[in-house]
Amino acid sequence: MDENTNLPEQIKAVYRSLFAFLIAFCIIAIGLITYIKNPNLFNNDSKSAETESEYVAIPQDDDFDKIENGIHVRTGFVEAEGLMETVNNCTNCHSSELVLQNRMSKERWIATIRWMQETQNLWDLGGNEAIIVDYLVTNYPVIAKGRRSALTDIQWYELED
């Protein structure tokens, strides 16, 4: 009778073993499927899998830094002194839209840069900092506005009956 009293524990042990086997099988299957779909992911050659599979190369053709009507096409920044310093330093980490939607004073831009350096691992901008801040303050000044900006550039049309 002692053998029968341990039966539920033995069944639990079998279930645990089957569960562990099932988990291991799933992990191996996922790894195999991943390898079949992208064998370079597991390649340790000089070319890292990271550069081949995760990043898409941005074409460096003639249109890469094209300016049309005074606007840098790729970013939407205004063409002015300090444009490329701003593009090269600001859009490495975030979209140009984040810069364009913020209009700050010189003091606020400097404070924002310090915050990014302290909390977001922004590198020391060196001499480019003054150029970037001047570019932003000159081309994207603070706009005094109320609750919401007034609508501009509206194209009215007649409603048809």
Rank of each mutant, 00 (worst) to 15 (best):
T5D: 15
T86K: 02
L151F: 09
L151A: 09
R114L: 12
L151R: 09
Y157V: 12
L32C: 10
V73M: 03
C90H: 05
T119A: 06
W123M: 14
L136A: 03
A111L: 08
A111C: 03
I132G: 01
W109P: 02
Q120A: 12
E79G: 01
N69M: 04
T34V: 11
L100V: 00
A80S: 09
F25V: 15
E79M: 12
M116V: 00
R108L: 09
Y135S: 00
L122K: 06
D161V: 13
R103F: 00
P59G: 11
P39Y: 00
D153R: 02
A57Q: 14
N121L: 08
R147P: 15
I28Y: 12
K145L: 14
A57G: 09
E97P: 00
D2I: 15
T75R: 04
Q10V: 06
N92V: 13
S105C: 09
Q60S: 07
N92T: 15
I36E: 15
P59Y: 10
E85S: 08
L100D: 03
F64L: 05
E158N: 13
N121P: 07
T5I: 15
S96I: 07
I71N: 03
D134P: 08
D153N: 12
Y55A: 12
T34P: 00
L83D: 02
M104R: 07
E68F: 03
P59M: 07
L136N: 00
I113P: 11
V78H: 10
S95T: 02
R114D: 12
N6R: 12
T119E: 10
F42V: 15
R108Y: 14
D2T: 12
T91L: 00
I67M: 14
N43L: 06
D61E: 09
F25I: 09
A111R: 09
A57W: 08
N69A: 08
I154A: 12
G126V: 01
I58C: 06
L125E: 00
N44I: 10
R103K: 11
P39Q: 03
C93F: 03
W115R: 13
N121D: 12
A150E: 15
M116K: 14
F19C: 11
K37F: 03
T51E: 11
V137E: 02
T119W: 01
T51W: 10
A24V: 04
N40A: 13
E158V: 15
G70Y: 10
E81I: 09
N92S: 15
L7C: 04
M104D: 04
I131W: 05
V142M: 12
G127W: 08
I58T: 06
G126E: 07
V99W: 01
E68S: 01
L22Y: 10
A13G: 06
V133K: 05
Q155K: 13
